[in-house]
Design a protein around this nucleic acid. Sequence first.
DNA 1: AGGTCGGCCTGGCAGC
DNA 2: TGCTGCCAGGCCGACC
Length: 310
Amino acid sequence: MPELPEVETIRRQLEPLVTGRRVTRLDVRDRRWTGSVGPDSVTATVSGRRIERLSRRGKYLIWELEDEVFLLMHLRMTGTLLVDPVATPAHTRVAITLQPTPAEGCGRLIAFVDPRRFGTGELVCGRGALETFLDARLGLEPLDPAFTAAHLRTLARGRQVPIKAFVLDQRQVAGVGNIYADEALFGARIHPLRPAGRLSAAQYGALAEALEQALRAGIAARGATIDDFRHVDGVRGSFQDQFRVHRRAGLPCPDCATLVVKMVVAGRGTYLCEACQPRPRLRRAPAARPSARTATPAGSPESPPPARRR
DNA sequence: AGGTCGGCCTGGCAGC
DNA sequence: TGCTGCCAGGCCGACC
């Protein structure tokens, strides 16, 4: 599923092919693809405009068109962008035709393909509106120089949600999805269920670093292909070959050979090594008391009844 | 306000 | 073989 490295891979491949060219026509074939602005309006606004830049923030791919028109694409789980597919692929939701260049003599077709139809397109007019849109949805990316241990610690202060849920929250940490969250938490030796606000100072540092490393490794490998993700020419990414825990339940941890386990955190399949990522101790009554199994019979002199809390 | 959960969607696969 | 039903999950909105 496309996370930051996958979207960045697409952006880098697409950028030289589209920058400076004019959109002949944008054809929205699935009316549910567009957000607040209707498909006809998206078509009318985008068609005929020149592409000035292709940028990215978090998992959004941003087509920057002339006159401060921005088309924000989100691939969600199964979205892919294909350039000049041999035939129009099944599940094509949007088709973009680019004006021919003198050198090529023919236009290019870019297809937004998305079997599960979770992907979306959003049209935003004006740079201020773009910033407002993004700032409301996205926090800093781990690749941002300002994304430090101190930043993470401040964000997480007082939060009780599991750290995995926290890093998956795009308003906190932009660009991280299920794959890179698992890999980064393993890299930082942090259990995914640990409350976000209860990491040690060293752990915030390790996590900030591990998130950045995981994303950079993903970009270097041109993303991960589990089932749907493809490069713009249909080629697969290779980061899945470097997974250390993600989707490796029952296989040995690369560091200690303990078998990787799968659990559900924040509704997501979550993979970890329980030896390398020790489970947080449960917060309970301050005084340790004997468990029911080993307790001496109630009322005996050795075992006064435990003090009730509150 | 912080946290949890269901809905969206459909291909693939396990189980019968 | 063919059917049913479950699972995957990013994001949003409803709910507690």
